[in-house]
Design a protein around this nucleic acid. Structure first.
Lengths: 348, 348
DNA sequence: TTGAAAGCGCTAACAA
DNA sequence: TTGTTAGCGCTTTCAA
């Protein structure tokens, strides 16, 4: 069949549009639009007609048209170092859950711990006119900070507090305090010297803060402390490697307290200690960070620090929805400290 | 109608538009647009003028306007059960890397293993006119299948092959075969009976397939086999619980082969065996699935099956970019089996 | 190779 | 409460 003869006017591309719905419902398009945004502003009769038409035609609104017209899209940009990181994964899952009722979707970006990538991602994401932008940490390039401020888009910085002043809103906790708490906890377990194990601390600013806090607190407590870092990612395998370095350099000391930059490293220490027949927590007390899934079931069960990554996600959602609802943040602070908890188990 | 001289004409909302760039560069907007999509189609002079203007004005295109006009947005929708699942996280990370050069961004959706949520997410995501849609598995509701087919959007189903016929493209592997391979491997290690441990197999279709394949192969091999499932998620903790059930019910057997639905469960078995002073791999050989980060460093090192989640991501990206480039899939199949590898370590 | 013109599908003033 | 109208910023014919 010959399709549209001459007038290549409408290069209609979407099955059902709002106009179709309006026609079918016997109302104007703007009534349909209004109905979607505020059902109560429309008469029951019109509302029902629209509802029926939507169902009959199986209509789904075009988000881009809506976004273009309203200069804001139902998208929340989320920019994190890596989604493979269990911390961010947990927060994103929980954030999404919180955003769901508002029908906001997540647009994901991963920086791989590269600030220039972050810059690019912020630019691109901003070009969607997102309802909000969520970024990990408070450490951004000057260009990015400038861009974010200028954009007028609500920004939530997550998983870090206590460093740079937040650009707008922030949900997280102070990683230096985490390190300090780990050192204090180990000290309370009669440790005579402390070490901190980490991976590529030069890239992971938050891990670096934990190390700093740990070492500073050790000093304050009058305990000798050393830091073993490695340029590799902070994995279980690295934990084993680092523990062997500890053994090589402190092999004849006992009552050592080992703080780990995360639970993966701590797990590696546990395994390696088992292989090397070292006693935990006797000679080496071990403290992780993250309270990851396996921590409580490890043998021996891993003492660690729990960061509440899910709360970070839900609070972030709350702030975003609050801002959307037009609640100004005069009445409540928009910097939320979700804190952390020291969880003592068998390794300390 | 006189020329409207009403003031509220343009509710300009974006700092710099393509028109501004065009004006500054001394060309028309359509030339600027053309330059972005195909720089070579524009004269060097015009191209340079545009490039300079873009830089000077710090222009970022409005993606929604572009998407609306072209009826397709630079977005790839990704719908998975959960981003906290390390498998999907790895694939998404790798997918994003592959999509990056084409400036495609990921719009994320999580179903939490709920098909009605999947339905809703597919609808919503489709309303962005995405360049492609990536969904986990091949098991979808009839409505979703219908919607996807009708949309004309390229669809890639990932992490599963061998079940339903793919809707369009698919990248993954056969989970039944994984289960069978695990059973065969354990049989080859002189096991006299087999068990399979899993969590909420009623929700996780792929885990169910692995269990099925395992049990069917055990039968084919003439080995007695049992399946221990639990409605809880497949975690390390659950591994310990399930292992205790194994001990309770098969306590006086030796040379048992334990297949686990994933490495978390296997890790839990390892820890619990250590607590209960059971010998691995002597009395209990253990086989995981996933080759997660900790598997190779565990003590004893965990035998497992490696699924190549990163390859799934990169191949998915390749298919999407290929489809975009207009390459029809007549010349090459668009169903890619990424396979898996049995990795033998110390637990078998 | 470039530009004019006509929308893409929706929202938002404003008027009725 | 509803409809009219005029865009949002970009892409895409088509003609020059």
């Amino acid at each position: 069949m010959a399709k549209s003869e001459t007038p290549r006017k409408r290069r209609k591309v979407q099955g059902v549009t709002m106009m179709d719905v309006a026609e079918r419902a016997g109302v104007s398009p703007s009534t349909v639009s209004l109905f979607f945004r505020n059902p109560d502003a429309v008469s029951a009769k019109a509302g029902n007609a629209v509802r029926t038409a939507v169902r009959d035609l199986n209509y789904a609104p075009n988000r881009m048209a809506g976004g273009l017209a309203s200069a804001s899209s139902p998208v929340v940009g989320v920019i994190v170092p890596s989604i493979r990181n269990a911390f961010f994964a947990e927060t994103i899952a929980s954030l999404q859950r919180g955003l769901d009722p508002a029908r906001l979707q997540i647009m994901l970006g991963q920086t791989e711990y590269d600030q220039s990538v972050e810059d690019a991602l912020v630019r691109t994401t901003l070009s969607w006119a997102p309802a909000a932008l969520v970024v990990a940490g408070t450490d951004h390039s000057a260009a990015t900070r400038q861009l974010l401020k200028a954009s007028g888009v609500p920004v939530v910085e997550i998983w870090e507090l206590g460093g740079e002043t937040p650009l707008d809103m922030a949900v997280g906790f102070d990683h230096r305090e985490v390190g300090a708490a780990a050192a204090r906890h180990l000290a309370s377990r009669a440790r005579r010297s402390l070490v901190f194990l980490s991976g590529r601390v030069h890239e992971d600013k938050r891990a670096a803060s934990r190390a700093e806090g740990f070492l500073a607190e050790a000093k304050a407590l009058g305990l000798p402390a050393r830091h073993f870092d490695h340029p590799a990612p902070a994995t279980t395998e690295l934990g084993g490697i680092l523990f062997n370095r500890v053994l090589a350099e402190l092999g004849n000391e006992d009552a050592v307290g080992i703080g780990c930059s995360n639970d993966h490293i701590a797990l590696g220490v546990l395994f390696e200690a088992q292989r090397q027949a070292r006693s935990i927590p006797g000679d080496y007390a071990v403290m992780g960070f993250g309270d990851l899934e396996f921590a409580s079931s490890a043998a021996p069960a891993l003492s660690t620090i729990r960061p509440f990554g899910d709360v970070i996600g839900s609070e972030t959602a709350r702030l975003i929805l609050g801002r959307r609802a037009g609640l100004e943040d005069t009445d409540r602070t928009s910097i939320i400290d979700t804190g952390f908890r020291v969880v003592q188990r068998q390794t300390t």
